[in-house]
């Protein structure tokens, strides 16, 4: 079979539909992951023994297991264990939330703890309670340091969604596979799929770069 690049254009509508699912899972998953990761990260950095231990356990459980196993667990094992029915899409989003959350927690913790302790002391010394010091002084400084590693995690999570092929979510990679099954145009299809991913990750990189540029790291 000859390679016919023009055939790539025929899949565009399907690929766009697949990419939309990928974006949907990534965006929802990362929003949840940022919330969960921030909470867990702050628990690690400033929580007492118990909060710290809870966050630590969560982070290590997730970082110590592959995301495919995590989503399989959510989709196949959870219904058995807890009698919770969960559709593939929700399992996929939840997997990103839980997985990205663990990595983001470490990023958040690292960013907050990297801020000079003298600034926290200066804030406390003018009579601010600790939470206000974190909110008005340390948080904004940590945020600037958060952006580069967070951007990294966004890209990793976006690519991780391709693994949800294992539970049959119709995201981009799965779409590629379906088209392939119909016409066996491996070269064209996987090139087109790769280009789609590159466009998405490239856009993310570009957006993060411009945010980074506007914010000085202090």
């Amino acid at each position: 079979m000859q390679v016919d690049w023009s055939i790539m254009f025929d899949f565009i509508p399907q690929l766009i539909a697949g990419a939309k699912v990928t974006i949907y899972i990534t965006v929802l998953g990362l929003i949840g992951g940022i919330v969960l990761g921030s909470i867990a990260g702050l628990m690690r950095a400033y929580g007492g023994k118990i909060l710290n231990a809870i966050a630590f356990t969560y982070i290590e459980l997730i970082r110590g297991t592959p995301i495919v196993v995590q989503v399989m667990f959510l989709y196949f094992a959870l219904p058995v264990l807890a009698d919770i029915r969960i559709d593939p899409m929700s399992a996929a989003v939840l997997a990103i939330v839980v997985n990205a959350g663990a990595y983001i927690a470490e990023i958040v913790r690292g960013a907050f703890l990297s801020i000079n302790k003298g600034l926290t002391e200066a804030g406390l010394a003018i009579g601010m309670p600790h939470w206000k010091v974190l909110l008005y002084i340390i948080g904004p400084l940590a945020f600037r340091r958060l952006i580069p590693p967070l951007g990294n995690q966004f890209i990793v999570s976006l690519k991780d969604t391709s693994l949800f092929i294992v539970i049959g979510v119709g995201e981009l990679t799965r779409t590629g596979q379906e088209i392939m099954a119909a016409n066996f145009r491996a070269v064209e299809i996987w090139t087109a799929v790769a280009i789609c991913y590159l466009i998405m990750t490239g856009t993310m990189t570009f957006a993060l770069r411009s945010v980074e540029k506007r914010m000085k790291i202090l």
Binding site: N116, G118, L119, E121, A122, G123, A125, I137, L141, L218
Partner: peptide
């Protein structure tokens, strides 16, 4: 309090 290293919020 005034610190040796100033500790101004940058």
């Amino acid at each position: 309090m005034v610190f040796q290293q100033f500790n101004l919020f940058p």
